[in-house]
Computed example of a mutant assay.
Amino acid sequence: MKAIVYKQFGSTDVLQLVEEPKPTVKADQVLIKVKAFSINPMDWKIRKGEMKLMSGAKFLKKTGADFSGIVEETGSGVGHLKKGDAVFGVVKNLMKEGVSAEYITVTASLVWKKPTDVSFS
């Protein structure tokens, strides 16, 4: 799968498109095929290194915390979502996680069904 990552702090020039393995779900997670994600001020502050005391300097990093997409798979402990559900959500730890990829795994408690009258964007 494709993902947008960065391997050092800096401007948008540090962003790279790479191939990664599709993530696998744990019991409390869902696998999401990402349709849209947002970039917020905190995302670019983290990418530029302005938040490195909290985000750490360990790389490879992805950007983005908010997303929408389609459930591809659910973990064994997930009951409120199923394959094919249109959803939106947020990652648990903006400082360490990101959603700039074709597929992501997210703790199911941070994912909700998307209203049908709201676009993925």
Rank of each mutant, 00 (worst) to 15 (best):
E20V: 09
V111A: 01
V91G: 00
E50Y: 08
V118K: 09
V5C: 04
K52H: 07
S109C: 00
S76R: 08
A101Q: 04
T116G: 14
V111L: 01
S119G: 12
G77I: 10
S100N: 05
E73L: 07
P41M: 01
F37G: 04
F88N: 01
F88R: 09
S109R: 11
L17D: 00
Q8A: 15
M54F: 11
L81D: 00
Q16V: 11
V106G: 07
Q16A: 15
K114D: 07
D117H: 15
K83Q: 10
M51W: 08
L53R: 14
I39F: 01
A57C: 10
K45H: 11
K7Q: 15
K96L: 11
F9A: 11
T74I: 13
E72L: 13
S119P: 00
V90I: 14
Q16M: 14
V34I: 14
K113P: 10
S68V: 08
G69N: 03
G69F: 04
K35V: 06
Y6H: 13
K52T: 02
V14Y: 04
T107E: 15
V87Y: 03
I70R: 06
T107I: 13
K26S: 14
L60E: 15
V90L: 10
G56A: 01
Y6G: 02
T63G: 11
R47F: 05
A101L: 02
I39G: 03
S119D: 15
K114I: 11
V99P: 12
L60Y: 12
L94Q: 13
A57P: 05
W44G: 00
I32Y: 02
F9H: 14
Y103D: 07
T12Q: 14
Q16L: 13
V34C: 01
S68Y: 06
K62D: 03
K22V: 15
K82C: 09
F67D: 05
G89C: 10
M95N: 12
E19V: 09
